[in-house]
Design a protein around this nucleic acid. Sequence first.
DNA 1: GCCGTTTTCGGCCCGACTGTTTTCAGTCG
Length: 572
Amino acid sequence: MAMTNSEIADLFNKMADMLEIKGENPFKVRAYRNAARTVQNLGKSLEELVAEGKDLTRLPGIGKDLSDAIHEIVETGKFSKLEALKKKLPEGLDELLSIEGLGPKRIRQLYDTFHITSMQELAKVAESGDIYKLKGFGPTLVEKILKGVRLAKKAGHRFRFDVAKPFAEELRRYLAGFDGVVKVEVAGSYRRRKETVGDLDILVVAENWDDVTDWFVKFEKVKEVVSKGPTRSTVILSNDLQVDLRSVARESYGSALHYFTGSKAHNIKIRKMAVERGWKINEYGIFEGEKRLGGESEEEIYRLMGLCYIAPELREDRGEVEACMAHRLPRLIERSDIRGDLHMHSKNTDGHATIEEMAEAAKKLGYDYIAVTDHSRHLTVAKGLDEKRLLEEMEAIDRLNEKLEGITVLKGIECDILEDGTMDLPDHILKRLDVVLAAVHYKFNLSKKEQTKRVVKALQNPHVDILAHPTGRVIGHRNPYELEMGDIFDVCKKEGKILELNAQPERLDLNDIYCKTAKEEGVKISIATDAHDPMSLAFMAYGINQARRGWLEKEDVINTLPLEKLRALLDR
DNA sequence: GCCGTTTTCGGCCCGACTGTTTTCAGTCG
């Protein structure tokens, strides 16, 4: 049975949950969680690493035992230590951990006393009042637990970055405009530009916290005020997005910002380094004993630690601290590096604007070129182009280019990869285009072997330049199709093919981890919007966010090149 | 369960808040 890295990480996290409820050594629990994180952050599948006979104990947080466990999981699909544990403690207990106010100790109490193993059983005992027999369970806690059970369905729901963004920006303006507010910043995963955010963490420096928090809870989109305290207030917005507002002292602003930006793993890394020096870092500052060394700005914290400033997008403990110490931190790509957009559609298929309108809009963004890449015939729902219509479009683009000034339209196609890996349009026409994207749009559920073979074959076609939205995932809606990414990187490297980072906020495909792997493997990226109207050309910003999280620099991305160099690159 | 320029044992990030207690355990971020 094939196991993906995510599934293996899930098993380790589940193991950690169960061990925690069992009351095991908390550091053992942490070891499993660390291992889960390592596995999740890996750019290559463990299945492949095992097949290649790689020494897994070289991976951070993986020792002899966990290496053996990974081998077992990959080879048999089973994790015997977890199976054994499930015999002692029923499965389902770990689910209860998702309820706010319930941790391992209380779950254990509930299980030992009432044999509770599910949300329903928990609700029953709570409603009957029997739950009060347990030490430490009072009315407020029980109310919270009941609420948690009701919310459990929604638990774990994360908001796409683009969905959270307007709320974050509006709140930032709303608070910044209030008298007495000195500084406002949205921290957390939002600041790290993660593709989804769980909630918004907003920090304020203000002279009059009480007034600020009064103003905060009056924000028009607040649906519910969860708490309102002397340092922190929490509200739920109309779309169920939770927002925490925290009061920060001016001298602690940097350390608080660093702390609340995270990630947790990055923070732990930095704190450990501080401990090695006999220092301590917390959200109030950086200290040597009682003596305060600093904390007013993030730059100061990094400087005191002997590090350069690390951009929030990199703070995931994926090697950024080590890279910084080796002076090999990337100079991350910026929106202003982008010279063109190589994936978009026109009215001729499923777009909503003419090619000329798209070109004019791109010109306003400061681009030198775009590629119009309408769909090919197989995608009938999108009115995909057959050979004849594509030739017409190509001629129309030639005529348009004679008229346009300051921008060039490249002739392209987003050509379907058929089930057998051949292209939806014949070579003789693909050959005449400036840029050919290959894309999977159906048969998502082939086996990993078949799907990989299909895509590899498409990439071996000499006329194909770029693999569009390489994994096919749609955030919160559709999982990536089964693909051995190691093979995809290999063929791209060998054939000089390019992987797209599709900037649609619900795609962001490649993801950050694969972007980083691509860079390490020497595979180039095209950041492209897949825009279907002029407005959507602005999605480039989301692509840039993801690219930065994937450590990409200007040199790694082909659409930072001037037109002539891009043409030379594509004209193999 | 991992890790090691103090390396095979003994550490492992840090503090606040909450609800419950009467000095603190558990949970959370």
